[in-house]
Design a protein around this nucleic acid. Sequence first.
DNA 1: AAGGTGACTAACA
DNA 2: ATGTTAGCCACCT
Length: 105
Amino acid sequence: MLAFKERVINLVKKVPYGKVTTYGTLATLSGVPRGARLVGGILHYTNEKTPLPWHRVINREGYLSINCMDHPKQLQKALLEQEGVVVSPAFMVDLTIYGWFGESK
DNA sequence: AAGGTGACTAACA
DNA sequence: ATGTTAGCCACCT
């Protein structure tokens, strides 16, 4: 069902500026609690095809999961800081502060 | 065209 | 408590 991808994308677009969300959250809100991998896989490809704020999507621990040289987490960190999000030198973000779990649902 | 992989998470042993 | 296995669905080769 392409609805899943579109749903995830839609949610990513709904992430407030200066906030970050997790794959699990997007997956759950999309209707697939264990589809976290799908979110990552989808973003990994669609981000190059669609203007998505993929940099606002991180893992459950608030850590930039990306480790691909094609998608430098360093870029994600820069983008997050650009939005006012404080990213630790270890590419960690305080989900306690910037964590967005879909308040608009 | 079919198969394998993937930016993860959670449950089970 | 920690370690390992299983699951999700779509996209790429």
